[in-house]
Structure formats: structure tokens, C-alpha cells
């Protein structure tokens, strides 16, 4: 691990890991993500254990609508791709392009969050309160935890975009944008399992 970076030729090809700090953040962030995997596993396990305990309240098959979940999935998948494009632009030192794609990622995330809020409001109208049944509590905890991650991610990228609006790509902010993109992909992975395990299995009547 060399302490010095050759900056004379321009932005290094991997700016996110050019400094010791960047390298440490990179490993540290993967440790964090691995912890997140385990945490989400406990929420998934709880939901799978309790999903039949509807206590006379609304059931999964009555509530979930495929078109809405499908649109949300497509939005989040696309936002994952746009953040990939942004990071590729970052590696090539194309700051404006990176900013543009990060903003697109941000707005796709906002759209996703809007749908999720709309969805929760609808379910409450159908009589599925947080404490209606074991199914309701575990559903809101799992999907709500994912939603909270989306909120956090949106706040994160918004702060980065505002703070580094004119900074250009530097060895300080490149790791930050890169970690955000890892986080965003992770949120997408979790959503893939939520739409499979929660929504499709709920509709499929497993």
C-alpha cells in the first residue's frame, strides 16, 4: 500500500481508492454492508415467520397490487443503473456527467419513495394499522426499514451533490460518491428480495 499517489498525470483511474483514507472507507463500507445483510435477514425471517398471523385483519393477497410493485421495482432498478453510469463518469473525470446521473438517481429515488408512502397510506385506509396483526407489524417493519434506508440514501446523495456542486472530482469526494453508489446498489438488492418474498409470495398465495 503506497502512501503517495501519482497525481501529476491527472485523476487516477480508481480515484475512490487512490488514498489510504479511500481504501479504508472501501473496506469499512463492505463490513457495514455485511452487517446490514444480517440485520435485514432478521427482519425477513420475522416477516416470513409471522406473515400468516393476520388476526382477522387484511391479508397480503387482499392488499398488494402487482402494477404498483412492478413500477416501483423498475424505478429502483433503473436508479441502480444510473448510479453505475455516474460512477463510470467519475472514474473518467467527467464531473458534469457524474452530477447529472447522480441527480437522476436522486429523483428516481424520490419517485420510489413517493410510491412507497402512497402505498402505506392506502394500506392504512384498508384497515392495516401497524398493530393490527403480526403480519401488519412485521410487514411495516421490514418494508419501512427499507424505506428508511432509501430516505437516508437520498439525504446522503443530496448533501454530497450540494456540498460538492462546484468542487469537481477530487480525491476527497470520490470515495464518498463511490460509497453512496455501493449503498444504493445494496438498497436495490434488498428491494429485489422484498418484491419477491413479500409482494410476489403474498400475491402468489404461498
Amino acid at each position: 500500500m503506497s502512501e503517495t499517489v501519482d497525481v501529476s498525470r491527472g485523476l487516477p483511474a480508481h480515484p475512490e481508492r487512490a488514498t489510504l483514507e479511500g481504501k479504508n472507507k472501501f473496506v469499512g463500507f463492505w463490513v457495514f454492508l455485511s452487517g446490514e445483510v444480517t440485520m435485514f435477514a432478521t427482519f425477513f425471517g420475522t416477516y416470513l415467520g409471522l406473515r400468516n398471523g393476520t388476526a382477522g385483519g387484511p391479508e397480503a393477497a387482499d392488499l398488494f397490487h402487482m402494477p404498483l410493485v412492478f413500477i416501483m421495482t423498475m424505478i429502483l432498478l433503473t436508479s441502480s443503473l444510473t448510479s453505475v453510469i455516474a460512477i463510470t463518469a467519475m472514474k473518467k473525470n467527467q464531473f458534469k456527467k457524474m452530477k447529472l446521473w447522480m441527480w437522476i438517481t436522486f429523483f428516481l429515488g424520490v419517485a420510489f419513495l413517493g410510491f412507497e408512502i402512497y402505498e402505506f397510506v392506502e394500506y392504512v385506509h384498508y384497515g392495516l394499522g401497524f398493530s393490527t396483526s403480526a403480519f401488519a407489524s412485521s410487514f411495516y417493519s421490514l418494508v419501512g426499514l427499507h424505506g428508511a434506508h432509501v430516505v437516508f440514501g437520498l439525504g446522503w446523495v443530496l448533501l454530497l451533490l450540494i456540498r460538492y456542486n462546484r468542487a469537481g472530482i477530487t480525491l476527497t469526494n470520490a470515495p464518498k460518491f463511490y460509497m453512496f453508489s455501493l449503498y444504493w446498489h445494496f438498497i436495490d438488492v434488498v428491494w429485489v428480495f422484498i418484491f419477491t418474498v413479500v409482494y410476489l409470495m403474498g400475491i402468489g398465495g404461498g
Binding site: E3, T4, V5, D6, V7, R9, G10, L11, P12, A13, T19, L81, V84, I85, T88, K91, K92, N93, F95, A167, G168, I169, T170, L171, T172
Partner: peptide, 30 residues
């Protein structure tokens, strides 16, 4: 080194080979 942490770069240090590699990777990602 320490003084080049918060300054932007005028160009990328990518070699042609690295640019090709990035583009290939982008295609795979699509």
C-alpha cells in the same frame, strides 16, 4: 500529496487501455 486532496483534476490519468476496459465494463453492466 497531501495538498492535492481537495483540488479537481484537469484530466484523467487513464491510459487508452484503461479507457477501453472501462467501456467494455460499461457494456457488460448494460
Amino acid at each position: 500529496m497531501a495538498d492535492h486532496l481537495s483540488e479537481p483534476f484537469k484530466k484523467s490519468a487513464m491510459t487508452n487501455e484503461e479507457i477501453m476496459k472501462t467501456q467494455r465494463e460499461m457494456r457488460i453492466q448494460f
